[in-house]
Design a protein around this nucleic acid. Sequence first.
DNA 1: CGGCAGACTTGGAAGAATTTTG
DNA 2: CAAAATTCTTCCAAGTCTGCCG
Length: 562
Amino acid sequence: MSTGRKRAASSSKEDRPGIKRAVKWTRQFSHAGPRFQPDYKPISGTKPLFRYAGKPLLLERNTEEVAVMYARYLCGKRRTRDIEKTLQQNFFEDWQKYMSSKEKQQIKKFELCDFSGLVKKLQEDKAKPLTKQERAAQKKKREDMMNQYKTVIVDGRRELISNFTVEPPGLYMGRGKNDNIGRVKPRIKPKDITINCDDRHIPKAPGNSKWGAIVHDKSVMWLASWYDPITKGPKYIQLHPSSKIKNDIEEEKFQTVRKLHRKILEVRKHYEKDLKSKKNETEGEYATRQIATAVYLIDNFALRVGNEKPEGATDTVGCCSLRVEHLSLLASKNIRLNFLGKDSIRYEKGHQVSNAVYDNLQDFTRDFDGKKKTKKQLLFDSIKTKHVNDYLYNLMKGQGLTAKVFRTFRATQHFEEKLEEYSKFHELKATKSTPEDDKMKMIVFKKANLAVAQLLNHQTLSKPTTKGKAIKVNEKRIKDAQYKLNNLSKGTDEHRKTTAQLVVLKHELDLKVEQRTYALGTSKTNYIDPQVSAKWCKKYKVDITKVYSKVQLGKFRWALRS
DNA sequence: CGGCAGACTTGGAAGAATTTTG
DNA sequence: CAAAATTCTTCCAAGTCTGCCG
């Protein structure tokens, strides 16, 4: 497959400010290429596990491989979704492409397919306990394999690779109301791969196979790429977040945020001026007013910019793609936004807005000519996200201000404020700590983290029941502690200690309850400036490894070397 | 300009590893 | 010590934004 990718690093790129556009490597980019998925091993012997119309049917190897993909899907704990029908249809349509002509004649209706034998077999294999030796051997084999593929040398520096294996064949599992759900993602082969490496270290393709293409592009940081047959979009083998290049880019991201922080009053003054409508407004001025209003929403409520999506894609929106139906104008300059955002996560919040913004939003429920829009029409009908980013570019020329910077800025700022607020409220000590003090510090950190997750609307759809159980356990402990306390005389050490424990337990419970539907991970790894955490940790004598995991510590090396 | 392809970040869920509990 | 709970890592889908091209 010809990829058509041929861009080499040009000098003009090097001249531009910022790391993103710069050359990523110069002399050496040497790696083993991606690891491929092992070939499929049939799971049914001579006895068929699949049944059609009640009768056992032995599937050919390729046919079984795809059937097993569906069986694997059935094994997982899947939520009942209204998308189930589409999934089955897509799967069956694609599956038939893998069948022999004889099988295609036999297997005509999805409803008559019985995968339960395959499912049972998969579950049995999974449940099979391994001996200690088997487990160790398996681990060793895995490590040996990984050692062969997991690193790349970038200009003399050995770096980790984040995903060195090509994606396995399987069913495409999109989120929300996705039209491609259940389609069969075929196996990726060496001929599908474009390798990016330096010209003296070209990895060898496995066996007798050949790479699809080999490029030496210094302006990008991917090691290998291929096209996803379902989405038609490119997929990449990339560097690990702990790598120097990724670290540099991450540092630059938060530098941009700090620049915005310094200029925020100016920026706000500028767009507030553009919020005002003019007499005999031209179409251009009307568009500017839409841009300013969108920027207001992005700045104030940390919304995503909301790019246009291709026809037929899952119907999710961001700021610029909001439709009239997603907005309610309420009394006292209050508005309510209700829409499906990224990953089909619902955003449903009420906000108070300025007079100018309220008036504008009301205006934008009509088009430029004053004609009332339908519910399905765009609120910001005269602009594209490109215009918003062009506008922002001009507000902070050459300093990398784009819409998503506001989200990071607001997240970090919110975190800093909440950390301070909670630290004061819970009277954290900067000196030596009891175990209860240490626990309170972690609670404060997590509470601030949670506040950011709420701001960014990082909700989880899956609510593991375990979380409910955990809450019960916590409640019981509170009861126990309370009971214990009642039987202790005041003023004793034991009484003091139990009181402190009780306080911690109560706050832990509050946190657990509030945290139930929120995912804190994304805000911690992508939005909160690690320098803020580091400063707080230093102040309150908290070990930074208590708040960041190993991968996060690697990602934030740039901020944490003291 | 506007549209689109490409490259990179951000996102929730699944799965693996580790810690806690009984 | 095993099972359960929790935390961390991996996975890959779904965004953002840039640069190129007509």
